Amino acid sequence: MSLKNFSSLSHLTKLDLSKNELRELPEDFGNLVKLKYLDLYQNQLQHLPLSFSKLKDLKWLDLKDNPLVPTVAKVAGPCLDTKQCQSCARDVVNFFVRLEKQVNSELESRNKTRQKQLEINQQKKQEEKKGKKKEKQKQNRKL
């Protein structure tokens, strides 16, 4: 089974993917909503998918020995004992919850701005049409 198919295993609670040289996880990885234990020790992960925000049941996470981007590495912290791995799970999921909210807010803002610009463009076109119509009427009156 490829890693891309893991997200269909929605009842999975424990997953050990350590030492697999994984470079990325599929974006829909967060569909593993029942996951409680996730070991990603010693891979090549730099990023985690935004869908990590859905892993609310995650109680244990090991991200040691991955070349994570500094922001995620700092949030994850060390995982040298059970308590630290539990904190890692909680902190990483919370980080991605906040990040997802930020992304959604930004998308919503961009969509509103885009919609306003479309409305302005439509108004300009209508005004141009009215102006051309008036110009034609003036020319017809002169003739």
Rank of each mutant, 00 (worst) to 15 (best):
V93E: 03
Y37C: 03
V93Q: 09
L35D: 04
R23V: 10
K133Q: 14
N94H: 10
S105F: 05
V97Y: 01
P70M: 10
E100S: 12
D65I: 02
R90N: 10
A73Q: 15
Q102V: 03
P78Q: 10
R110K: 13
E108C: 03
V69L: 12
G131K: 14
R141M: 11
N121H: 09
L45P: 09
F6A: 05
N43D: 05
P78G: 06
D39R: 02
V75A: 07
N111D: 12
L35H: 03
E108K: 15
L61P: 08
K59G: 12
V69Y: 01
L107Q: 14
L12K: 08
T13Y: 00
S109D: 11
R90M: 12
D28W: 00
D57T: 09
Y41F: 14
L12H: 08
D57C: 10
S53A: 14
V75C: 02
L9S: 04
Q122P: 00
K19L: 07
E106N: 08
F96S: 00
T71L: 09
N111I: 06
V72R: 06
N104G: 01
G30Y: 02
K136C: 02
F6W: 11
L15D: 05
D16L: 04
C79Q: 13
D16R: 02
L118A: 12
D62L: 03
L25P: 03
L61V: 04
Q139K: 15
N5F: 07
K59P: 00
K130W: 12
S53C: 13
K124E: 13
L32H: 06
K74D: 13
L99F: 05
F29G: 06
P70W: 09
L143R: 15
E24I: 01
S105Q: 13
N20I: 07
K19M: 12
L99I: 00
L38D: 08
D91I: 00
L118Q: 14
N111E: 15
K34Q: 15
L48G: 01
C88A: 14
Q102N: 10
L50P: 01
D57W: 04
P70Q: 12
L45Q: 05
Q117G: 00
L55P: 01
L63C: 05
F29N: 01
L58E: 08
L55H: 02
C79E: 11
D39F: 07
L38E: 11
